[in-house]
Amino acid sequence: MAESMKKEQPCIRCAECVNRCPVGINPVFIMNTMKSMPVDKAKVKALDPLKCTDCGICTQVCPSGIDVATIVKRSKVIAKLP
């Protein structure tokens, strides 16, 4: 709990999450697409977040303390929309 309440630092694009993702998706692109308003549904679908297995490695390795896995999980809802 204490770790999740930690203040998030900005993403410095170090690509630790991209290199360590076991299914080969790009969590940074998904995160940036989800943070932009309005969310581009076609782009989220093209980034294929449904491949994600919720392993949570991206959150673990992030030096900025960003909860990437939760953002990818949210993007799955948008990717499932018709």
Partner: peptide, 13 residues
């Protein structure tokens, strides 16, 4: 699991 690889954050970088 999963194993944490980096033990220092972005400020340390």
């Amino acid at each position: 699991s999963p194993k944490k690889i980096r033990h220092y954050g972005v400020t340390a970088r």
